[in-house]
Amino acid sequence: MLYDDFYVKSLIRTVEDWPKPGISFRDITPIFSDPKGMRMVVDAYVHRYIDSDISHIACIDARGFLIASVLAYELRKPLILVRKKGKLPGKTISQSYALEYGEAELEIQEGSVHEGAQVLLFDDLIATGGTLFAAMSLLKQQGANIKEVAAIIDLPDLGGSQKIQASETPVFALCAYEGD
């Protein structure tokens, strides 16, 4: 099944004033209840990365887990979970960051990735880039190379994807919402 940008975008809903007033939240959860849309999204990433030299897929809590876990399964790659503080057992390393509506902290388990690993970092959405930069920092602290950052949605008006690309990390998103 081929990827259809219009079809997938038709599944993404905008929730105004969530999680706080002034935010237009792009909700990808309808994709998960639409088998055709889910297949299109997963297949688009599988086709993009099937012949790549990535060794691991890292994903960010929590919506990023849903696509990345299927992608890791399809590509037969280890999955690294990047979670909100306090959600992972054992020894972890953490990184705080700012996001468009507050502050937060991410963690990964120590030893979850080895020196020289070639990592695809996946999240559902790229906004200001704060979450992704925190995740990139955690992975790099363990010696990983970030091959690419991937997301379903890019919000280029918020500048995150441009900042990531300026750090010499490629970015790929299935769709973008500009000026709205």
Rank of each mutant, 00 (worst) to 15 (best):
G116P: 08
L138S: 03
K85D: 07
K77N: 06
A104L: 01
A44D: 03
P21A: 13
D17F: 13
S161Y: 00
G86R: 04
L158F: 15
W18C: 13
T14L: 09
A135V: 06
R13L: 12
F133A: 00
A62R: 04
C59N: 07
A58G: 15
L138H: 03
L132G: 03
A135P: 01
R48N: 02
V82I: 15
I80D: 07
H47L: 15
P170I: 01
L125S: 06
I67L: 12
A127N: 08
A135W: 06
G160F: 02
F6C: 02
K36T: 15
P35A: 09
C175R: 01
L139D: 00
F6S: 13
D123M: 10
F133I: 00
L66A: 14
L81M: 15
D27I: 09
Q109M: 15
E100A: 11
R63C: 04
H56E: 14
E107R: 10
S112D: 12
I60C: 10
L132V: 14
S137R: 04
D17C: 13
K77E: 10
L155A: 10
D123Q: 06
L125C: 09
A173L: 07
T29K: 04
G160M: 05
T29A: 05
L158D: 11
F25V: 11
I152S: 05
L174W: 02
S69W: 03
G86A: 08
D17H: 14
I153T: 10
L155I: 15
H47T: 01
Y73A: 11
I146S: 12
G22F: 10
L158Y: 10
A151Q: 06
T29Q: 02
D5E: 15
D124F: 09
R63M: 08
A44I: 01
G102N: 07
A166C: 05
C175S: 12
V15R: 10
A72N: 05
E168Y: 11
S52R: 04
C175E: 10
D17G: 12
K91M: 13
